[in-house]
Design a binder for these strands. Structure first.
Length: 205
DNA sequence: CGACCGATTGACT
DNA sequence: GTCAATCGGTCGG
């Protein structure tokens, strides 16, 4: 595929579909982060869907609050939250305005800007293990310089956005239960690319 | 207001 | 395998 196709920004309509349709479609898409002259790019390899009022594990389960209000914006915005007193995680907001649903980005494969990603992650990252840069939701936010300042960012803007990326076939997609939650455990709403070494570690169930 | 805990990570036994 | 870090959100009193 020509590079200009892979790097064409996803349109608003992509984000307005049902969340469980969008989640697996996000696999293979490129996450692009621009800061000044720097451009960081990673291919999305693992995601989880959070279905608002239908989902006790979702921040939006009990309705809109100051913290989760971005989840209720129109699809195609970035919802960033702070957790464990030290980590940020980012989500792609989905569906129409007023519906509190989103897809958590759990892991990406670094494609461009590896050195600045290493710098953002700090010296604890071994150079021998490139996957340690972005194989977890908080790791990828740190590597991409995503913080509360990017909460509410429009994915049709130029600060952070998604592009068409690489084609991923249905046969390459594995569906499992979600990770690290205490309610809604049974829902098979985690999706990742089979065999990709940048997928986060799966704990025993 | 106090207590509990989290869509995690990294260090350590 | 276990566990501390570290603080905002949430809920009960």
């Amino acid at each position: 595929m020509p590079s200009r196709m892979r790097h064409s920004k996803l349109p608003r309509t992509f984000y307005l579909k049902p969340t469980l349709t969008i989640a697996p479609e996000l696999l293979g898409k490129y996450l692009v982060r621009r800061t000044g002259r720097m451009e960081l790019v990673g291919k999305i390899v693992e995601v989880e869907a959070y279905l608002g009022e239908l989902d006790p594990a979702s921040h939006a389960y009990r309705g809109k609050t100051k913290r989760n209000e971005v989840m209720f914006w129109q699809g195609g915005h970035l919802y960033v939250y702070f957790t464990y007193g030290m980590h940020y995680c980012c989500n792609v907001v989905t569906e129409e305005e007023g519906i509190g649903r989103a897809v958590l980005l759990r892991a990406v494969e670094p494609l461009r800007g590896i050195d600045p990603m290493k710098k953002n992650r700090g010296t604890t990252v071994s150079p021998a293990h490139r996957e340690d840069l972005t194989n977890g939701p908080a790791k990828l936010c740190q590597a991409f310089g995503i913080t509360e300042l990017q909460n509410g960012a429009d994915l049709l803007g130029n600060e952070v956005f998604l592009t068409k990326g690489d084609r991923v076939t249905a046969e390459e997609i594995i569906t499992t239960k979600r990770i690290g939650i205490s309610s809604g455990r049974e829902k098979p709403w985690r999706f990742f690319i089979k065999g990709n070494r940048f997928v986060s570690k799966t704990p025993r169930i």
